[in-house]
Design a protein around this nucleic acid. Structure first.
Lengths: 308, 308
DNA sequence: TGTTCATTTTGTCCTGTACAAAGCGAGGTG
DNA sequence: CACCTCGCTTTGTACAGGACAAAATGAACA
């Protein structure tokens, strides 16, 4: 049953973990981890277990931990993951203190994921959607579910492919709901996308659902739109708002300059809204609206409308 | 109107073009292109026009041209793009010789894209879907449309963001159609996904539509599933078939070894089907089914059923 | 017309070095 | 005691230049 997993070269590890080649080599030099073998030609070969650990470390770093502590240490990370509350939690206010409202549903979804019961999962989710309505479903259920699934993975309770299955089902469900909404044609016109290297589709879809439900005209442009093309798109579609999503995994290094550059690029009358797990690391900036929570998007929309 | 576009550093260029840092530096060394400026600290700054050209070169390489010819040369690429027929065209047989059957529709779609008329585009596409039926729509319309849109971009007739808009609309439409299909519960059970670094969602969705329409049980796992997790998923879901999609952009270098490794990893009774623009570069292999065309997926399904 | 072999092309990996921006903590000030 | 400033440490990313193997090409040959 348990095929010995083949080791990966540095390029594959970069793709699998999201850690750059340079970073991987730097960690090895500085912290003594990872410790890849070498093939006959002197190239690094990372054992699968070390790649697993790298993936975990990456997620913990995205949560706010420092590499020096994680990469150097051994096994006491296990303690850290048990403590699921991330140090970043105290961001703005204590607004995210109601995570276990949907606790029974969460347990049910996790169970169905572990059992690979796709029909049951689909039914559970669409029942929840119908029961709660799209807005409450997105805010109260999908949000906490996403977090719970991520944490369950970190605790080793579910596998990567089960997480993928979850994401895919939510995506399908949201797109289906979205398709049922007739285009309103009303303002504001909102452009939704992500920048290159950012694949955080789900968050974007959640925002789109909320905004479309309130009658905004959403223009989804998929993911990974280069900055300057985003400017062109905003002008061409006469957008009132450009909404971007950054996952927590987006490199902090590039976040601030990138958003600054984009703000300069966009016409000043176009608003720029940023959401997703990565946006808490952003410093305030004129003409920039930071939306750490989903409710934030709704109130931002309301404000926009009052302003007109 | 025309803001001077800011130059990009090497990391941004990597993300925007898909060309690795090492490759970018190697081209500069070998072919004398690109010729980035340097910032005050000696780091490369690529002018936006050179990034455009790099994007174009990348697409032409994906089509089968050699870097040495493209990167070294200057401006006569313009001639090449005019000749839209790629050298790889003569792959298996002359089966792809009916591209302009949908010509009027293609022109209409391109026009609506250029005018950013989202409602019209949506209507055109869903009318076509209803008129032709899902199967013919996917095979006869979406396939050629994808090619036409890509070529129009290369000719400079449409912008990147217009291409993104197109992709997004097709995705929405296909997912919507797919949602309308009740799960059949019938064999075969097909796992659909892509490997890390491969984002070619659309092709996967097209195959899913065709297979689901014929009553197969499709289990979509999104994109970028690591190899070993794919194995686990296949076992957990008791899959009969694993279907992967590779775009033409996938690095040839890694394609063959990766597929070989995967074939070893998967249980022998699970079939492995590979489709997408990248699969023509694959050499045949035992237990591997290469599907260069969409029709191929259908006949493969039929064969599978007869075998049982 | 098709197959084999030598040569060129090309992407990727290596080592070792360097530096700036972000994070952290000490110390001073209201 | 809270808050701000400043210097030190951490950390990601960039550079050069060399190396090599797999893929593509074209020439020689059957």
């Amino acid at each position: 049953m348990n095929t010995p997993r083949p080791p990966l070269n540095i390029g594959s590890v970069e793709r699998d973990t999201g850690l750059g080649k340079d970073t991987l080599r730097a960690w090895e030099r500085r912290y003594g981890f990872p410790t890849p073998d070498r093939d006959e030609h002197g190239e690094r070969l990372y054992p699968a277990e070390q790649v697993d650990r790298l993936r975990l470390i990456k997620r913990l770093i995205d949560l706010g931990y420092r590499p020096g502590k994680l990469v150097g240490a051994g096994e006491e990370e296990l303690a850290l993951l048990g403590a699921q509350s991330m140090p970043v939690a105290a961001t703005t206010d204590g607004e995210e203190i109601a995570p276990q409202k949907a606790a029974p549903l969460i347990e049910r979804v996790l169970g169905e994921l572990r059992e690979h019961d796709l029909p049951a999962l689909q039914q559970t989710l669409s029942q929840a959607l119908l029961r709660e309505g799209l807005q409450r479903f997105v805010i109260d259920t999908v949000g906490p579910l996403n977090i719970a699934v991520g944490e369950a993975w970190m605790r080793g309770e579910i596998e990567v492919f089960e997480e993928h299955l979850y994401t895919e089902q939510i995506t399908t469900l949201l797109r289906q709901a979205l398709a049922g909404l007739a285009p309103s044609g009303q303002p504001p016109r909102v452009l939704l996308t992500t920048v290159p290297d950012e694949l955080h589709t789900l968050g974007l879809l959640m925002v789109q659902a909320l905004l479309a439900l309130e009658g905004a005209s959403c223009i989804p442009l998929g993911t990974q739109l280069p900055l300057f093309d985003l400017r062109q798109a905003a002008i061409a579609h006469r957008a009132d708002i450009v909404a971007l999503s950054f996952s927590a995994a987006f490199p902090t290094r590039q976040l601030q300059p990138l958003v600054g550059k984009l703000r300069e690029l966009l016409p000043p009358e176009v608003e720029l809204w940023i959401g997703g797990g990565g946006c808490t690391r952003l410093r305030p900036l004129a003409g920039l609206r930071i939306l750490p929570t989903l409710e934030g998007a709704l109130s931002a929309l309301e404000e926009w409308r009052q302003r007109r």
